[in-house]
Amino acid sequence: MSRINSCFEKLGQQGRKALIPYITAGDPSPAVSVPLMHALVEAGADIIELGVPFSDPMADGPVIQLACERALEHNVRLVDVLEMVREFRQKDGETPVVLMGYLNPVEVLGYDNFASQAAAAGVDGVLTVDLPPEEAGEFGEALRANGLDCIYLLAPTTTEQRIQHICDSGSGYVYYVSVKGVTGSASLDVQAVAEKLDLVRKYTDMPIGVGFGIGTAEAAKAVSAVADGVIVGSVLVKQIAALADDQEKIPEKVAAIIAEMRAAMNA
């Protein structure tokens, strides 16, 4: 069984929901990322979404755009991100790692080459923001052939017909984008999310993670009541940016946000 599946199975048995932090790899410098990943796990993260920096992050708000720019100042490439996962795996063989990013850096490596390198590094799933299932035929095959989960987005605008198609195409979990907007948008409407998730569950048994616009422990708790996983990114990246000149403090301070969310979700 994949790490992602066993993670959700274990959480289900414990009656808990997944807490899934997002950080941009190499932000604000490459040395920070692996210690930060370990600190997040210790603070209660169940899955880590590791952002692959891209020059043109079209679906991201200003917070994650700037994170990409900081990482790219250090020339952090997709292969460097894979190296970080390999290093993380030396100490942590259990926590699933999902790469989240855009298609073009993957195109350069080639789908099969990327998928086999990612699997070898210890990656569990891949979420490519600008790759809907309609365009993902070959890419999805390459991921499956290497035992990687292909995670897709669902949005408030996704039609019922597409929900079925997307759920049939993906594996691991589906990522429900809670608001119309970019990452870090204004706060979400939990009731509207709950209604949409009911609809999604008609079509899949896969766990559903909810992200975009979750910035507080209260919001994390509210979403965890209706979803299988809570994905938080911009609030962490903001804290990372604030400590760009004091990087030794980043793992502790960022993990504290996750610890608070974990406590609220468990309460």
Partner: peptide
């Protein structure tokens, strides 16, 4: 090649 929100 766009994010899901724009597909519809």
């Amino acid at each position: 090649f766009v994010s899901e929100t724009l597909m519809a």
